[in-house]
């Protein structure tokens, strides 16, 4: 069933740039749960929740959770096995 609330990883391009300091949408990440390597742009993103939730496009496991308040940002990347940072 189509899920119209789902975005792709381009939706977090700005947020990832802010968090990592480099353009990340073409960076490769590895899912800790299923081991699949993919680029950030192809991840599945839900942004209408109380925070941003990024999931593996293959096994749907949560890779990243980001919550932002007016003065703080919380990041949980524990669903990632690895992520490359372009230089």
């Amino acid at each position: 069933m189509a899920d119209e609330r789902r975005l792709d990883g381009n939706a977090i391009g700005g947020m990832m740039l802010e968090l990592f300091g480099v353009e990340m949408t073409n960076a490769t990440e590895v899912c800790r749960t299923c081991g699949t390597a993919d680029i950030v742009a192809r991840l599945e993103v839900y942004m209408d929740a109380p925070g941003t939730v990024v999931r593996c496009a293959h096994c749907k496991a949560v890779l990243m959770r980001v919550v932002r308040s007016p003065d703080r940002t919380w990041v949980d990347f524990s669903g990632l096995g690895s992520i490359e940072l372009p230089r």
Partner: peptide, 11 residues
């Protein structure tokens, strides 16, 4: 009634 979801809707 806004819909907020952190993932795909289970059925």
């Amino acid at each position: 009634f806004p819909v907020l979801s952190a993932g795909p809707t289970p059925h």
